[in-house]
Design a protein around this nucleic acid. Structure first.
Lengths: 192, 192
DNA sequence: GTCTATAGCTTGATAGAC
DNA sequence: GTCTATCAAGCTATAGAC
């Protein structure tokens, strides 16, 4: 390389934030260039497919992180309620306690390319499936588990919308706290 | 007028849909022109302030409808649970059972003008206030009522996001059905 | 692997005819 | 009150130097 440059991880971090905050259409190359410190042509060197490839790369990496840190631990051998508690804790980190909106939500609005929208839907479905499985493991029937998982995703996404519009993250944090009960029927264990 | 033209109500209908589906940035004048059948210059004749004035007009009309049809009836003299049931029924119509996303959500993303974002937040707050009041009327303390209203709004918005991403409107419809219990503690009355 | 420069198109907005 | 024609600015994308 000729001059020092930003590494892939940092680059994807910055890209993720731009897409998350501005959505697909709002994430203009000017904004991306400003956020990453790279000129247009450099961005096209890293992502020959242009803006859509950038969004796909961002989604793919978010998926990887989400699957390994949040979904996979949902099916280990601990008690279901503890698995959900851990998911809630990691979701709190992932969304910065509600300060961050959801990339899937941002990219689902409006006019992202069809392939992107499809990817978003699949990520959503994977999340739903993992939560359904843990609800089943906690003893729910298939139908009830599916309903509980949908309700959980509804409340998580709604909490994030609420935070974005009002700036008040308390409802989102309340949702996370109530996730174990919602998904496994297990109330929070009070010591003593 | 020289030639027949679209009336204000129809025009605002079309505009509302474009902003709802595409968000503020995605609602380009080309799309608006196509959706309304009016050329750019004609749109500027109706809305001298341009795109921002169009969005403001759309928001203002949505507010009017929402306040008179949904919020005002929340504070009449019927039993609280019946007021909420009526709100749920009208929300089902307003959002076409979840097929329509929320204008407030769409306009809150990304880079709508600051004045718009402020308007969106105020509409959200008015809705919260009306639901808080009906929860109080049902006997909740101020703190509990506020929490219930926030939870209701979280679930409504989350249900709409869920519908938009997955195309499955069932969770949203379930949210509406459960609103009376959530806001007033009244289960659905089973006849007999 | 970055940069400058620019092509070609779309955007939001205006001017002026009818 | 609509239209055609146009503007300057912004957009995505590319060419080519270093």
């Amino acid at each position: 390389m000729r001059t020092p440059t930003i590494d892939d991880d940092q680059l994807l971090d910055r890209l993720t934030e731009v897409f998350r905050v501005h959505g697909y259409e709002g994430a203009s190359l000017s904004r991306i260039s400003e956020a990453t410190g790279l000129q247009r042509a450099s961005l096209y060197h890293r992502f020959p497919g242009g803006k859509e490839e950038m969004a796909e790369a961002v989604l793919r990496r978010a998926d990887d992180w989400f699957i390994s840190h949040i979904l996979a631990p949902l099916s280990d051998d601990q008690p279901p309620s503890q698995r959900v508690e851990r998911m809630a804790k990691r979701l709190a980190h992932f969304y910065d306690s509600g300060e961050h909106s959801c990339l899937l939500d941002s990219l689902s609005l409006g006019d992202a390319e069809a392939a992107l929208q499809c990817h978003v839907e699949q990520s959503f479905t994977a999340w739903l499936g993992a939560m359904t499985a843990v609800a089943r493991a906690a003893g729910a029937t298939a139908a009830v588990a599916k309903r509980q998982a949908s309700d959980a995703l509804v409340q998580i996404q709604g909490g994030l919308v609420f935070s974005r519009v009002t700036g008040d993250t308390r409802p989102f944090r309340r949702v996370l706290k109530n996730l174990p009960e919602l998904l496994t029927g297990a109330g929070v264990k009070k010591p003593g």
